[in-house]
């Protein structure tokens, strides 16, 4: 008997979702949907903002990289000027790497040879 009772209840429960009825009228439902859309950030409405961020960060990173290159490789002012005399002729050159006149003379000699 109890078994039959349980099965009956079980089957009744399986019908319950078919009987469900939302009590909200179309205006109320509209209000609920609008509120959901207003209060919740839908990622689909966000990519523009996200893209702006990504582009800004990328541009900033690219600028910094370019500044670094320009500053260190291209436009770095000379640390010092070296004067060396080779075959009685004075050569003046800018040196960025702290090179000594002896090293430079040696280097020039190697090139000439």
């Amino acid at each position: 008997m109890k078994n039959k009772d349980f099965d009956k209840q079980w089957n009744n429960c399986k019908e319950e979702y078919k009987k469900a009825k939302c009590p909200l009228d179309s205006n109320d439902l509209d209000r609920f949907i609008t509120r959901a859309m207003e209060t919740t950030q839908n990622p689909a409405t966000k990519p523009k903002t996200r893209n702006v961020w990504i582009w800004s960060l990328s541009a900033a990173a690219a600028c910094m990289a370019m500044l670094f290159v320009v500053n260190t490789v291209v436009a770095k002012p000379a640390d010092e000027f070296q004067h060396i005399i080779i075959d009685g002729q004075e050569i003046i050159f800018a040196c960025n790497n702290g090179c000594s006149p002896e090293n430079t003379v040696e280097m020039f000699n190697q090139i000439i040879q």
Binding site: L24, F32, I33, R35, A36, M37, T39, N42, P43, A44
Partner: peptide, 18 residues
């Protein structure tokens, strides 16, 4: 129930693009 309904709608809207 209406509060839960609202909360569910919010989550549905949030995950709708997926």
């Amino acid at each position: 129930v209406s509060d839960m309904f609202q909360e569910v709608l919010c989550m549905l809207w949030r995950y709708y693009p997926g």
